[in-house]
């Protein structure tokens, strides 16, 4: 076995944390360069606007620098940072809360008195797309996610895209687990409605 292997992630993390705690300037720069791009993408997904995402990332790194003592090394640096970035992005979203949010009701399925759906449902075709179609479809899906009312979009992003579990999302948003479940389900239903013209026609 070759002992000069490249450092594994855990060892690299441990060395970096030690250097950060020792206050080495170069370690802070390494942290920002190693994780900054990925974390900026997370902030952009949640906030949408690039300038605000950059501000949130700056807030997040400053919080992370101040919280180095609390990093216990049991999780990866990327996981720890990710959570700090999500929190910073959510703080930004809360502080810039725009106009009253659009209601989600119009995007939820409507039912007749007997419990059947009002509108007939056409099954979308399974996608067997080429790579370029796939990229185009992904862009369309991102546009539709962007249209979701923010309360619901945030939960969908945190659960289905950032892949946090329900309890973690509840803590992040300071709402109950039941509220996360309701919002996630409605967000998925609303996104299905928004995607219907995309997947129901364009790709059939």
């Amino acid at each position: 076995m070759d002992h000069d292997e490249v450092l594994n992630d855990a060892d690299a993390d441990a060395l970096l944390i030690a250097a950060l705690r020792a206050g080495e300037d170069s370690a802070f720069e390494t942290l920002v360069r190693r994780y900054g791009g990925r974390m900026l993408s997370v902030a952009r997904r949640l906030i949408g606007d690039d300038d605000h995402a950059q501000d949130a990332l700056q807030d997040a790194f400053l919080s992370a620098f101040n919280a180095l003592a609390t990093f216990d090394g049991r999780s990866k640096i990327s996981t720890w940072l990710h959570r700090i970035v999500v929190n910073a992005a959510l703080m930004r979203l809360r502080s810039q809360k725009r106009h009253p949010e659009q209601s989600i009701d119009d995007l939820l399925p409507a039912f007749k008195a007997d419990g059947h759906q009002e509108a007939p449902v056409a099954r979308w075709k399974d996608s067997g797309e080429s790579t370029s179609d796939r990229a185009e479809a992904q862009a369309l899906v991102r546009q539709q996610i962007e249209k979701l009312p923010e309360t619901y979009r945030t939960v969908l992003l945190l659960r289905d895209i950032e892949e946090h579990d329900t309890e973690t999302v509840a803590q992040m948003l300071e709402i109950s687990v039941a509220a996360v479940k309701v919002r996630l389900h409605r967000a998925r239903q609303a996104l299905r409605t928004l995607l219907d013209p995309v997947f129901g026609e364009q790709y059939s």
Binding site: Q117, V121, L156, I161
Partner: peptide, 18 residues
């Protein structure tokens, strides 16, 4: 069945969107 299929496709599409 159609709604379930579309709903599942929606979740996958969201998960893969980025």
């Amino acid at each position: 069945r159609a709604y379930l299929h579309n709903f599942r496709t929606t979740i996958e599409a969201a998960q893969n969107a980025f």
